[in-house]
Each structure stands twice: as structure tokens, then as C-alpha cells.
Amino acid sequence: MGIIQTSQVKSPWILHFCNSSCNGCDIEVLACLTPLYDVERFGLVNMGNPKHADVMVVTGPVNYRTARVLKNLYNQIPDPKMVIAVGACASTGGVFHNCYNIMGGVDKVIPVDVYVPGCAARPEAIIDGVVLALQKLSKAVGVAK
């Protein structure tokens, strides 16, 4: 195993994308980065650029307009990559399941590796989801976690 594979698991960079979320999960994802939860101590860094990212954190249900953007961003992330659907909406459509502009969960458009439950998902649950995703990622790159 090389240094790149090791650092992919030890310091994964995150791309946060908000579909048409209510903001609830978005602020909880941001709260993960701030002093109380502070996921940066695990080497997780929030990135604005999809080409820098290893893990994609998606919040909110997919609607007919963001589906194209979501697919576009997913394709720009280099392999191997992990997708985490944060919150009930991103997993299944949640309370918005019967809204006319909603396609459903993120898995309608791109493959999802980890589903985080909750409305809004608690920061603890999000961190748990990221840890699960990292275990999958370490298997994918062949690094013992």
C-alpha cells in the first residue's frame, strides 16, 4: 500500500452537497466541523472542490433540477469514492416524499454507501456514518483501518 491509499483513509476530504434540503442537516454537517464535535481531529476536511474530495456528503431529497448537478459532481470525484446520504430526506425523500418536485432519495440518482437516519440527523450520527464509510473505503483501497 502506498502513501496515497493510507492518507485517503486517514485524512479523507469531504465534499458537502445540498440538494434541496431544508438546511437542518446542512447546519448539522457544519456543526460537526466546529469545536464541540470537531471532526477535523480525524483528518476530515470540508472541501468546495469535487476533484479534491474522497467522501461525498449529500443532504436533502433530490429534485428534478438538482439531479443533474448531483450526477455531475459525483462524476468529478476521483475513484475510489464514498457517498453518504445524511438525513431522512436524502435516504428516502422523508417528509417530502409526496411533493411533486421530488424524485426521492439520493440513491435514485447515484449509488449510496452509507445512510444516516434522523430528521435532522444529529452530528453524532453523521460522525458515525463517516466512520462507517471510512471502513468501506479502507476495504476498497486495501488498507487495514
Binding site: 447546519i27 429534485n63 417530502f96 411533493c99
Partner: peptide, 30 residues
């Protein structure tokens, strides 16, 4: 990009259930 169609969904659901839907118009001012 953020349009879901909550106002229409509020006509489909019964009025007490709309509270949960309206709270999810926005998570910060919910």
C-alpha cells in the same frame, strides 16, 4: 434548485400534519 413543492403538499396532507412540513420549509428558522 431548492424547490420541493411544500405548498401543494400542504393541501394534500391534513392540517395538523402540515406543522411538520412547514417546519421543514427551513431548518434554521424551523
Amino acid at each position: 434548485y431548492g424547490h420541493r413543492g411544500i405548498e401543494k403538499a400542504c393541501e394534500i396532507n391534513e392540517y395538523p400534519k402540515n406543522i411538520h412540513l412547514c417546519e421543514r420549509i427551513c431548518g434554521i428558522c424551523s
